[in-house]
Design a protein around this nucleic acid. Structure first.
Lengths: 118, 118
DNA sequence: TTAGCTGCAAATCCTTTGCATACAG
DNA sequence: CTGTATGCAAAGGATTTGCAGCTAA
């Protein structure tokens, strides 16, 4: 169930959000179970944690290369499928740093917050 | 003093590292003071927090646009002054996201760890 | 003497763990 | 009946706050 919540989310979710959404279908679900399940799914590689501004969020794995967009207005985090950098594994960065992976987070206004309130 | 520690660091530091380095000059310095000072400097805008893999690190502000490189071998975090993305403020990202800022973290091996152990 | 910092220890907050219970096989 | 998962509450670890003492002006 918790796995399903993350699969259907539009982006990574925090523990509290996972709890709330899961409780819609499972009233009485405890926070401890959420933590336990998130850890379990993480160990199984089915989901993985993302830390953003000190908050730990979780998202389903296997969605391919992607990055995140954090809305400075509503605070929601979205998943972006377009990558703004070209840094294949093995690229040597100025200074002699050998790049194996990269992570990008964009900040700004999401479509909803940018649109004039309809 | 704590401010000086961060100014002379080669990259962002964690609370524990700040404490250790500062204690070299201020034996008996308490952890509470470190937390209090880091928060104070942050509010003053003289330093700012960076979260990396769940760890909260602090670095001096005013060093211009830069990004971080986290060594997967030794765990140290370095500051990079070359930016791999071209996303000026106001760029509209596919999907309608208005970009105000971006953050990039590269992972890989630092020059020291990449070099054959001399 | 007064104001501001500091260390110590108690208080919080978030996450994990222990335990007795409840459901599935 | 047996084993696993769960909720509740206690335990942990990290960060914050309260408080009395210390230093500088």
């Amino acid at each position: 169930m918790i796995s399903r919540v993350l699969d259907t989310a539009e982006g990574p979710l925090g523990v509290a959000e996972v709890l709330e959404r899961a409780q819609s279908d499972l009233p009485g679900l405890g926070i401890a179970t959420v933590y336990r399940t998130l850890k379990l799914l993480t160990d199984q590689g089915r989901i993985h944690p993302v830390t953003l501004d000190g908050e730990t969020l979780y998202e389903a794995s296997g969605r391919g290369h992607h990055h995140h967009f954090s809305c400075t207005s509503c605070g929601k985090v979205f998943t972006l499928h377009t990558c703004p950098v070209a840094l294949p594994r093995g690229t040597v960065y100025p200074g002699g740093f050998i790049v194996e992976a990269h992570e990008v987070t964009l900040y700004g206004r999401c479509p909803q917050c940018a649109a004039p309130q309809a």
